[in-house]
Computed example of a mutant assay.
Amino acid sequence: MTDSIPTMYEWAGGAEALERLTEEFYRRVRNDELLAPIFAYMGADHPKHVAVWLGEVFRGPETYTKEQGGFAHMLSMHRGRAIQPEQRDRWVQLMLAAADEVGLPADPEFRSAFIAYVEWGSRRAMANSQPDAKPSSRETVPRWGWGEASPGTA
């Protein structure tokens, strides 16, 4: 008998859990004086798109790549936004608070890997958002696992 280790996507609760996370997160963003201006023009479907992104990152279905344009599309959404360190910090704070609020798994193994991606991804987004950012050589959505970073650059 072989025990298979669930993906982070499965452990989190799949698409439904990630949709709850992003809905709660963007509810907080809309009410945050530091972040609301960045997302002022976000469409009503933005939380759903981010949930699909996270699903693919956490080794769920490759829906973001198939339906949204993959890494290149996500990167284009951040280009030129000049995200500042205090905005990135708040983004992380609100994401972690939303994870608590919606009941994402609180076990240390999941939260450690989740926080690692949130930190890594938000720092890459901030770097890629700067006016002088060099184009990324990454072509695929990062695939995050238990205690491991996705290879390649972002």
Results as ranks from 00 to 15, higher is better:
residue 84 Q to C: 00
residue 32 D to P: 11
residue 39 F to S: 03
residue 154 A to L: 03
residue 6 P to L: 12
residue 44 A to E: 12
residue 63 T to D: 15
residue 90 R to W: 07
residue 62 E to Y: 01
residue 108 P to H: 12
residue 3 D to M: 10
residue 8 M to F: 05
residue 70 G to M: 05
residue 61 P to M: 08
residue 75 L to P: 00
residue 70 G to C: 06
residue 82 A to C: 03
residue 11 W to K: 10
residue 58 F to L: 15
residue 148 E to T: 14
residue 40 A to E: 11
residue 111 R to Q: 15
residue 40 A to L: 08
residue 78 H to M: 07
residue 121 G to M: 08
residue 140 T to H: 12
residue 9 Y to A: 04
residue 138 R to N: 14
residue 12 A to R: 01
residue 151 P to H: 04
residue 89 D to C: 01
residue 77 M to S: 13
residue 153 T to C: 01
residue 154 A to N: 05
residue 121 G to C: 10
residue 42 M to N: 13
residue 57 V to F: 02
residue 4 S to P: 03
residue 115 I to W: 00
residue 108 P to M: 07
residue 134 K to R: 13
residue 48 K to A: 15
residue 85 P to I: 11
residue 71 F to G: 02
residue 44 A to I: 03
residue 7 T to H: 02
residue 79 R to A: 09
residue 51 A to P: 07
residue 63 T to W: 00
residue 100 D to Q: 14
residue 74 M to H: 06
residue 140 T to L: 13
residue 110 F to R: 08
residue 31 N to D: 14
residue 48 K to T: 11
residue 129 S to W: 05
residue 142 P to H: 09
residue 126 M to N: 01
residue 1 M to L: 10
residue 64 Y to W: 07
residue 110 F to S: 01
residue 39 F to Y: 15
residue 39 F to Q: 06
residue 65 T to K: 02
residue 51 A to Y: 07
residue 28 R to Y: 03
residue 55 G to H: 12
residue 79 R to Q: 13
residue 40 A to D: 07
residue 135 P to R: 05
residue 18 L to Y: 08
residue 88 R to M: 12
residue 134 K to I: 09
residue 4 S to M: 09
residue 135 P to L: 10
residue 32 D to W: 08
residue 22 T to E: 13
residue 74 M to T: 02
residue 120 W to T: 12
residue 40 A to H: 09
residue 115 I to S: 01
residue 112 S to W: 00
residue 69 G to Q: 11
residue 39 F to R: 09
residue 89 D to G: 04
